[in-house]
């Protein structure tokens, strides 16, 4: 189910996911393309967060879970035995629902991903930190506070810091798991602008419970319900001319 003909950057085929005996995803097939923003919407508990967390195998850390079906990154199965999960997560970055900076300085937060890869050169680190902060539109606000604890930033700044931290390791795909649900409307607008910008260089996937946000930032929208993909198409089509009755009911606010 792919609305675009070019090869997908990351795509799932008949993806099933189980928490113990309960099935959270049912045969979900979605493809996400380069330089596009793909939004996943749906009511709470529909499996959208579970879905996005399968893309960088973050669910691996939850005991008792199981994946079936395929997830392809550049055409290669991310569950194949010769794929290193650490390497996968470097290529597929993630920004979480709540801003979760480390209890370290602004600088150390961003340098973390590089340091674990063994980069020690101070000058290179400084360069990457600046570039990442600029990439997350945060540089001007924090350039004099790089040694301050990240917790001294506002919630919205912390979330952009987390985005900068994800950018620092130069991923190919960035996953946003409801990135604006814990920050105020002005900060939300900034993050949305940022996502708009990021798609120039990255493949972006965003989970959101905010339909207006999906309409504003995304090129493609997938509507999920009860673990199933109901409809997946160009965002404007989903919002103006949905094919499925459920999609229409959801986007017009008849349930949610």
């Amino acid at each position: 189910m792919s609305p675009e003909t070019s090869v997908a950057k990351i795509e799932t085929r008949d993806l099933d996911f189980y928490y113990g005996p309960s099935r959270a995803l049912k045969r979900v097939s979605i493809s996400c393309h380069r330089n596009r923003v793909t939004a996943i919407i749906g009511p709470s508990g529909c499996g959208k967060s579970t879905f996005i967390r399968t893309l960088n195998r973050m669910n691996d850390v939850i005991p008792g879970t199981r994946v079936e079906g395929t997830i392809l990154l550049d055409g290669k199965d991310i569950h194949s035995p010769d794929v290193d999960v650490v390497d996968l997560r470097r290529r597929v970055g993630m920004v979480f629902q709540k801003p979760n900076p480390f209890p370290k300085s602004v600088f150390d937060n961003i340098a973390y991903g590089l340091r674990i890869n063994g980069m020690k050169n101070k000058r290179k680190l400084e360069a990457v930190v600046e570039r990442s902060l600029r990439g997350a539109a945060l540089w001007e606000e924090v350039k004099d506070r790089l040694e301050d604890n990240a917790f001294s930033l506002s919630g919205g700044q912390q979330q952009r810091l987390c985005i900068a931290r994800a950018l620092a390791v130069e991923p190919e795909v960035i996953l946003f798991d409801e990135p604006c649900s814990a920050i105020d409307p002005i900060a939300t607008a900034k993050v949305e602008d940022l996502i708009e910008n990021l798609k120039k260089s990255y493949t972006v996937v965003i989970v959101t419970h905010n339909m207006q946000q999906a309409a504003r930032v995304s090129d493609y929208t997938a509507f999920m319900m009860l673990g199933e993909l109901v409809e997946f198409d160009r965002t404007e089509k989903i919002f103006t001319n949905p094919q499925n009755k459920l999609t229409e009911d959801y986007i017009t606010g008849r349930f949610g």
Binding site: V86, F96, P101, Y112, G113, I116, N117
Partner: peptide, 9 residues
């Protein structure tokens, strides 16, 4: 989670 998502072991 943040650390793992950045590709840390």
């Amino acid at each position: 989670e943040a650390s793992l998502a950045l590709g840390a072991s």
